[in-house]
């Protein structure tokens, strides 16, 4: 694994408040798990960066090494790995995700 890819991933993770590594795009997810997480994150009305891992095999493998996590999607908030589909679903259901994403929500009045 080249360090360039991990550095590149690290740059994206640290450079955005909310980042989702997924298969496909938020408009057209290519996997049911990515689709679930996209619709959950979208429901909070927060701006987020989406990275389509299908566009780059090095990123697709690199993100698994970066997080020490074997599957995609992966959600990051403030540079921290939050989890994959199961954990995001659980945190969505119990309110933890709402709490974490609150600071990044678009203010509808502004």
């Amino acid at each position: 694994m080249s360090h360039t890819v991990l550095d590149q991933i690290d740059g994206v993770v640290k450079g955005n408040d909310v980042v989702l590594f997924m298969k496909g795009t938020p408009q057209m997810p290519q996997c049911g798990f990515s689709q679930q997480v996209t619709s959950i994150v979208a429901s909070y009305n927060v701006p987020y960066a989406a990275v389509n891992v299908l566009l780059d095999a090095a990123v697709r493998q690199g993100i698994k090494d970066y997080a020490d996590w074997p599957t995609i999607p992966q959600l990051y908030i403030k540079g921290e790995f939050v989890g994959g589909c199961d954990i995001v679903n659980e945190m969505h259901a119990n309110g933890e995700l709402a709490e974490m994403l609150k600071p990044f929500q678009n203010n509808e009045n502004s």
């Binding site: 996590w69 074997p70 599957t71 790995f81 989890g83 994959g84 199961d86 954990i87």
Partner: peptide
């Protein structure tokens, strides 16, 4: 939660690919 998932994923590491594509 992440720690629990990691423990399970590490245990099944050899199975990802041929046996496991997705694990909930």
């Amino acid at each position: 939660r992440i720690a629990c998932h990691r423990m399970i994923n590490h245990t099944l590491k050899g199975e990802f690919g041929e046996v496991i594509h997705a694990l909930s």
